[in-house]
Amino acid sequence: MTLTKPQDLSTEAIATLIGKNARVYTTGDMLTQDFVPNRVNIELSDTREIVRVWLG
């Protein structure tokens, strides 16, 4: 699927889609240092493109 414009990615929408606890943030945002093994972290660029997806 090709997107013509960035989509509105909210933590609630992502968590609903993947069925897991999710944290969505933009590159450069301050994050807590806690480790949550089943949390999906999704890093977005300033243009709302996915840069990285990781657990913890």
Rank of each mutant, 00 (worst) to 15 (best):
M1A: 10
M1H: 15
M1K: 09
L3H: 15
T4C: 15
K5Q: 07
P6K: 00
P6W: 00
P6D: 02
Q7I: 01
Q7Y: 10
Q7P: 12
L9Y: 09
S10R: 07
S10N: 03
S10C: 04
S10T: 04
T11P: 11
T11K: 05
E12F: 12
E12Y: 09
E12G: 12
A13W: 06
A15Y: 02
T16S: 14
T16C: 13
L17D: 08
I18N: 07
G19I: 02
G19K: 04
G19D: 00
N21G: 04
N21E: 07
A22D: 03
R23F: 02
R23M: 07
V24G: 06
Y25D: 08
Y25C: 08
G28V: 00
G28M: 05
G28R: 05
D29E: 03
M30Y: 12
L31I: 02
L31M: 03
L31H: 06
L31N: 04
Q33I: 14
Q33P: 12
D34W: 07
D34A: 01
V36S: 12
V36C: 13
P37T: 01
P37E: 01
P37C: 01
P37R: 04
R39M: 10
V40S: 07
V40M: 08
N41R: 03
N41P: 08
N41C: 03
N41V: 07
N41G: 06
N41F: 02
I42H: 11
I42K: 07
I42V: 05
E43K: 05
L44P: 00
S45I: 09
D46G: 14
T47V: 05
T47I: 14
T47K: 12
R48P: 15
E49R: 11
E49Y: 11
I50H: 06
I50C: 11
R52F: 11
V53E: 10
V53W: 14
W54E: 15
W54A: 10
W54D: 12
L55P: 08
G56K: 05
G56D: 04
G56S: 02
G56F: 01
G56A: 03
G56W: 02
